[in-house]
Design a binder for these strands. Structure first.
Lengths: 165, 165
DNA sequence: CTTGAAATCGAGAATGT
DNA sequence: ACATTCTCGATTTCAAG
C-alpha cells in the first residue's frame, strides 16, 4: 500500500514540507503531478496527518525537560489525561505498564515551573506519588522514523563530545 | 522579542502550517505581507526550525511505544547517542539524572521488534542494564506547547472513556 | 505595516501508456 | 490504473509609499 517511493516522499516531507512538487518529483524521478497524487493519497489515508512547524523549545526559553512517572490510587486515566492535555507544559501523557501507572513528558522554563507542574498534578484526585526523571542532556528528539530512509538530520548535529570549547 | 501576535502565529502554524499568509493575516488582523515578514523573522531567528509533516505511526504499523531506561558502566553517552540516532526505531535519547543514566523513546511494530532494539542496545560497549516501560495507551503526543495559545487539538480527541463501544 | 504588481506554485482536467 | 502535459487560479514575494 505504501511502496518505497511513498516512503522516500514521506522522508523528504518530514525533512522539509516546504518542498515543491517539482523538487520532490526530481528526487524520486516522477512528474510533479504524479507526486502530487501520491501526497494527496498519503493525506487522504491518514498516514500524513497534517503539515506543521517544528518550534525550538530553547528559543522560547523552555530549557528544562523531564519525564514524570505517576502513581495513583484507583484508575484516574480520564481525569489525568484531561488535566494534562489542558496544560501546554505537558507534551505527552501515557498510561504504562510497570511499577507506575502513568508517564508524562514535561517541558518548562526552569525547575521552579517544574515544581508548579507537580503541584498541579497532585490536585488530580487519586494521584498519590510521582518520580521525576530530569533530562541532563538531550541526545535527539525526532518524530516517527521511516526505516530505510536516511535523513540529513541523522548525520548533522555530530555527537556532542565530552570536550567542549 | 516575540510578542503576543508572534505566539498566536506560532500556534496557528503548529496547528496547520499549510495556512496561507492571507488566512493568518485575517486571524491576527494583519496584512499578508506583514505576517510574511513576521514568519520570516521567526524562521531566521531559529524559533521556527523547519516546516515538517506529522506522520501517523499507527498508519505505518508502528503500534508499540516504549520508554527504555538504560544503565551503563562508565560514561558511554557519545557511543550510545551515535548508535541510537542511527536507528530509526528510536525517536529520542537523553542522558538523565536518577537511578539510570539514559532514557530512550522507542517505537516499533510489535514486541518482537522491541526485543531486537534491546538486543542491539546491549551491543553498545558499557551498557549493562535496562528497564523497559511499555506504553499501554497513549493519552496524547504533541510538540512544544505555546502558553496562552489554545489549539483545537487540545479539545478534539475527547478522553477515551472506559466504556468502549 | 499597507498597498499593488509580477513571478511562481498548486490543483484539476484531458490525454496517452 | 497510473503517469504526463497543459492550463488557470491563487499565493508568495518584492518594491514603493
Amino acid at each position: 500500500m505504501v511502496d518505497a517511493i511513498d516512503r522516500k516522499i514521506l522522508g523528504l516531507l518530514i525533512e522539509d514540507a516546504g518542498r515543491t512538487y517539482a523538487q520532490l518529483g526530481r528526487e524520486v524521478s516522477l512528474s510533479p503531478a504524479a507526486v502530487h497524487e501520491r501526497v494527496r493519497r498519503l493525506r487522504a489515508s491518514g498516514i500524513v496527518r497534517r503539515t506543521t512547524v517544528d518550534v525550538d523549545p530553547d528559543a522560547l526559553g523552555r530549557h528544562v525537560l523531564a519525564f514524570v512517572l505517576v502513581d495513583s490510587d484507583g484508575w484516574v486515566k480520564d481525569e489525568l489525561f484531561a488535566a494534562t492535555r489542558a496544560d501546554p507544559r505537558i507534551e505527552e501523557a501515557h498510561s504504562v505498564a510497570g511499577s507506575s501507572n502513568f508517564l508524562l513528558k514535561v517541558r518548562v522554563a526552569d525547575p521552579d515551573e517544574l515544581e508548579d507542574v507537580l503541584h498541579d498534578l497532585y490536585r488530580v484526585e487519586g494521584v498519590v506519588r510521582s518520580r521525576t526523571i530530569m533530562v541532563l542532556r538531550r541526545g535527539f528528539e525526532r518524530g516517527v522514523g521511516i526505516p530505510g530512509v536516511r535523513l540529513t538530520s541523522d548525520v548533522i548535529d555530530p555527537p556532542t563530545s565530552a570536550t567542549r570549547e
